[in-house]
Design a binder for these strands. Structure first.
Lengths: 195, 195
DNA sequence: GCAAATTAATGATTTATTCAAG
DNA sequence: CTTGAATAAATCATTAATTTGC
């Protein structure tokens, strides 16, 4: 943390340090709230939080505000990195692993139902609007996808699953229509099966 | 709509019913994919899924789209209920345990720091501007909060995930509670902490 | 046994939120 | 700060289960 402040951690205690130095209790509570879901407190929330935390040491509204700002940002950052790493690792070990993955569902390929394909929805009645692989930004566009999948694939908190012994689901008689996407980014667009 | 046609369940088979009526095979496959991790298929994925499932009966892209939407939503819903129950139960046994919950921050109440309160920020110097408790709808009100958070915690396939910190939040001291389900499908909902 | 009547599931829409470019 | 894209939540509507009275 490089607390540059010469005042040496007393800011929280009452000194006139150059910057806020939260006490452990303050940090704990802040983190609690954050984890509880509070990501960007409103003005009044900040007021109240500040008031409460002031019991444990000097603190100002702006400190609280900045704390949340920073915490959120850094959290995102951390996650991003982690995923990056995970993904790299995955690719490292399985350079061409498509094979946990569902039939690839390659973009463009395939038959489409009746010219009218799926689109952004809303209340559009499924006009032809087309590709709009917007959603795609998520998938199939991005390698991170698969990671994500790996991630939440039930290590996590996800409550599903236990229902059926997770043997490989044969979805389709997978023909592994794996369309390698040769254009620019060549990540494959895949859907992992559970195991 | 309102195609009054009493074609009775043949929609899937080829009739002109008012709404799609998936065949068992279709349902099975969809569920397989869902459980496999596909929560929100992209446009192209939808197309392809549709194409494949059309072997088993009439089906359109929008049907697939809606199916995933609904399935995901109802899954969450179910989980929410379960957590609700869990929480109630917890409170029942530990009537006064707030202690993993957030400080209440009840609206309006509370002291404010120094007249100048916090607001919209940027680089404003913290004028008074005030309430804007928009964000609040979320938090601060309800202990259930934390649960809710868990809910959308990356079940989804959503790669953003910045929304919620990927770490599981420990709600109650729970380590692993399984909740036996009363409604239809009785998979157990175990919530394990991620680690 | 069988339909009309009622309830539960679930497909389809609409409306609100959310994030993050511009 | 505004706005567009993408969901998720809430809701409507229809189909399937089931209950019920005969």
């Amino acid at each position: 943390m490089t607390s540059v402040v010469p005042v040496k951690g007393t800011t929280g205690g009452g000194g006139g340090g150059s910057r806020w130095c939260p006490t452990p209790e303050q940090v704990m509570l802040l983190e609690g709230m954050y984890r509880g879901g509070l990501k960007t407190p409103t003005a009044t929330q900040i007021q109240q939080i500040t008031a409460r935390l002031s019991v444990y040491g000097k603190i100002q509204g702006k400190n609280v505000f900045y704390w949340f700002q920073n915490h959120k940002a850094r959290d995102r950052q951390k996650l991003r990195k982690k995923l990056m790493a995970l993904y790299q690792q995955h690719r490292l070990y399985n350079p061409h692993d498509h094979h946990h993955f569902l039939p690839t569902l390659h973009p463009q390929g395939g038959v489409l139902e009746d010219a009218s394909t799926c689109k952004g929805m809303m209340n559009s009645n499924w006009k032809v609007d087309l590709p709009s692989d917007q959603t795609c930004k998520f998938m199939c566009d991005c390698p991170l996808m698969s990671m994500m999948m790996m991630m939440d694939n039930n290590h996590g908190t996800t409550p599903y699953c236990t229902r059926v012994p997770p043997k490989t689901l044969q979805l389709f008689p997978i023909t592994t229509t794996n369309l390698k996407n040769d254009d620019d980014d060549d990540y494959e667009c895949t859907i992992t099966t559970n195991l």
